[in-house]
Design a protein around this nucleic acid. Structure first.
Length: 646
RNA sequence: GCCGAUGUAGCUCAGUUGGUCAGAGCAGCUGAUUUGUAAUCAGCAGGCCGUGGGUUCGAAUCCCUCCAUCGGCUCCA
């Protein structure tokens, strides 16, 4: 017998070799039916794997991450089986479950190209196979057996994976005629996979290495019920409507021109106003926090970047140097503001009493991003960072770092960004080549960030190898409408640039000391922040931020004069107002302005002229009734106040 | 940069196997209408069918180059 401990600490004896399924069955047949995988002593197992020792277990249903994971991972195997049956000889890379669904990297051979058009065919085959209720069976194999199997299949990808595994830890999973190297766990059988949608096809380098072969990645998602798939697809459709590229065009916020160049956004008047308001908001916060504004040029002498180390690191992949009539003189479009700010710091002697020095600039920078990387406003070649560099004494580092975290939180909170991840990005311990600066400085920087985050009680995740080449950082990451992650705010500790630029201050001991530098950008860049803001609000910006707050809709031409009167009243009250004096019916004007997402629509006609009032309609809500001009003004002011009070 | 897909009026799209296929709706302009909470009617104007080449008697349609966009990969100072 084995002793099984349940999550509520109840214990029960079972026959040795009982499976998760048997145990679930003994609790309730429904649980046995719904459980997709089981955690046994902290390890994820199949429901059908025999348990031979005393164990604590926890079942996972569809509702749990672990349950979905098993479901989608099994679906990936099912897809592989379908692909192999349609394209015999296909070689397989890896096929994991992901946040939403799964993918499999496949290599169908050099003469076969999979395209979107092939997906329905594979889907059909998967459904066909699923209906045969194939069981997923686990088998532990020796390394030799594993190698032999895939040698026979001539699958160099699997062979490479197996070669990196320890003998004795290797397992195979089979369903139908398909066998895969896999740790599991999997579903008992394919029966529960009822709804299948293959979503897209893409190239993906083997093992994420661009020097290696590019495989074909097939993305898909499956569900235990058809209705769940329909719901998911509907949700996806809805999410795509929030795409900032689409809304940006509709609301005339920004555009691109092939003539100007790819990745170089053109801010339209409404977008420029929105952005300016965001900038002013942050400027005010920064003023309160003791930042000093600076302005630096868009280019800098190449030597500046040789000194900073950026030229060596990125010179080849950047916009190339600008020549001048004078020989041996070269300038770079500035790809970052830090070196300029270092020179400002150096422009006069600094005392320990002056520290910290916080220099802030909305600095426009240019980076030659790879063409395939460009993406709307979130990844561009010319963008404006809400940049600042804090030069401080080592003893001030933690306090300053924490103050920056406060600013980021303030900004995020005031714009209702509640759903974000904080990530600490450290060095890749395996790859020293990638980084500049001494070990000692790196250790100091890394521990400073970790300490500051602990002190603020941040729930951070640590990523190794994600640091900038000159220092570690704390990033604030949010998701866009369809779940892609984007880094917004960033805070970086840097001991390297102060050294390279030989920055100094005179200490209380009358000796020269080296300051520490913090790079920080709460928005990250204005472009990316506005993009994410659009997707989060679907273009319905908070009242204080939105380009046009109010539109006046005269019922007919007869009331345009009154509308103008109201317009000047609102305008004088700093309420951003438009008049829609087109010769159209009210219904039409309401429809058009609702679609433009203008927060307040004011209908004025005979009634309103008579009692000097407006009829208020809130965008997306409807008729709010009649009120006097003063009342309306107060309504607006109150709403703005509640939005900007933090 | 790589893999795959796409590119037709300002916008959203239709154009069967190459032969009245250069179209529609919205937006715009003109006129009528003077309108009360999500689309009034009529008329007009709009395009070298992304670019450059090729195949053909004939190309938006087939082939190639390049450019741009989209989905991923890689990258992201």
């Amino acid at each position: 017998m084995v002793k099984i401990t349940f999550p509520d600490n109840r214990e029960k004896e079972y026959k040795k070799g009982s499976t998760g399924f048997d145990i679930a069955q003994s609790i309730h047949p429904r649980l046995a039916k719904e459980a997709l995988s089981v955690t046994v002593n902290g390890e994820l197992w199949d429901m059908r794997r025999p348990i031979d020792m005393d164990s604590s277990i926890r079942f996972h249903k569809w509702e749990d991450e672990e349950g979905k994971h098993a479901f989608w991972h099994s679906s990936a195997h099912l897809m592989a089986e379908a692909i192999e049956s349609i394209y015999p000889g296909t070689k397989f890379g890896i096929g994991p479950a992901i946040e939403q669904g799964f993918y499999y990297d496949v290599d169908p051979g050099d003469d076969i190209v999979l395209t979107d058009a092939d997906l329905p065919k594979i889907e059909q085959k998967m459904l066909e196979l699923a209906r045969t209720k194939e069981t997923y069976t686990r088998r532990e194999v020796s390394k030799k057996e594993a190698l032999d199997y895939f040698k026979k299949k001539d699958d160099e990808y699997k062979l490479e994976l197996i070669n990196e595994l320890e003998d004795g830890t290797i397992s195979f999973y089979s369903q139908g005629v398909f066998t895969d190297l896999c740790r599991g766990p999997h579903l008992p059988n394919t029966e529960s996979i009822k709804a299948i949608k293959l979503l897209s096809i893409a190239g993906a380098y083997w093992r994420g290495d661009e020097t290696r072969k590019q495989m074909t990645r097939v993305y898909g998602i499956t569900f235990p019920k058809k209705s769940m798939l329909d719901e998911y697809l509907l949700l996806l459709e809805e999410a795509k409507k929030r795409d900032h590229r689409k809304i940006g065009k509709e609301l005339e916020l920004f555009t691109f021109s092939q003539k100007v160049g790819q990745g170089l956004p053109l801010w339209l008047p409404k977008g420029a106003q929105l952005r300016e308001r965001l900038e002013n908001f942050l400027k005010k916060v920064q003023k309160d926090y003791g930042y000093l504004p600076v302005i630096t040029p868009h280019i800098g002498n190449k030597d500046l970047y040789v000194t900073s180390g950026h030229y060596e690191k990125y010179g080849k992949d950047s916009f190339q140097p600008i020549k001048t009539p004078s020989e041996n003189e070269e300038f770079l479009l500035k790809p970052m503001n830090c070196p300029h700010h270092c020179e400002i710091y150096k422009s006069k002697p600094r005392s320990y009493k002056d520290m910290p020095v916080r220099l802030a600039e909305f600095g426009t920078v240019y980076r030659y991003e790879q063409s395939g990387e460009l993406h709307g406003l979130t990844r561009v070649r010319g963008f404006t960072q809400d940049d600042a560099h804090i030069f401080c004494r080592p003893d001030q580092l933690k306090e300053e770092f924490i103050k920056v975290i406060d600013i980021v939180f303030l900004i995020f909170k005031s714009l209702n960004f509640s759903d974000f991840i904080t990530q600490i990005s450290l060095r890749d311990p395996e790859d020293g080549e990638k980084y500049i600066g001494s070990n000692e400085n790196w250790e100091k920087s890394e521990s400073a960030i970790i300490e500051a985050c602990n002190e603020k009680g941040l729930d951070t995740q640590i990523e190794y190898g994600e640091a900038a080449f000159y220092g570690p950082k704390l990033d604030f990451i949010v998701k866009d409408a369809i779940g892609r992650k984007w880094q917004l705010g960033t805070i970086q500790v840097d001991y390297n640039l102060p050294e390279r630029f030989e920055l100094e201050y005179i200490g209380s001991d009358n000796k020269r000391h080296r300051p520490v530098m913090i790079h920080r950008a709460p928005f990250g860049s204005m472009e990316r922040f506005v993009a994410v803001l659009i997707e989060h609000t679907a273009g319905k910006f908070p009242l204080w931020l939105t380009p046009d707050q109010v539109v006046l809709l005269p019922v007919s031409e007869k009331y345009v004069d009154y509308a103008k009167k109201v317009f000047s009243f609102l305008n004088n009250s700093d309420i951003r107002t438009l008049i829609d004096d087109r010769n159209e019916k009210v219904g039409k004007k309401i429809r058009d302005n609702e679609l433009k997402k203008i927060p307040y629509l004011l209908i004025v006609g005979e009634k309103e002229v008579a009692d000097n009032s407006v009829s208020v309609r809130r965008q997306g809500v409807g008729d709010k009734g009649n009120m006097s001009l003063e009342e309306f003004k107060t309504l607006i002011e109150k709403e703005i106040k509640s939005e900007t009070q933090i």
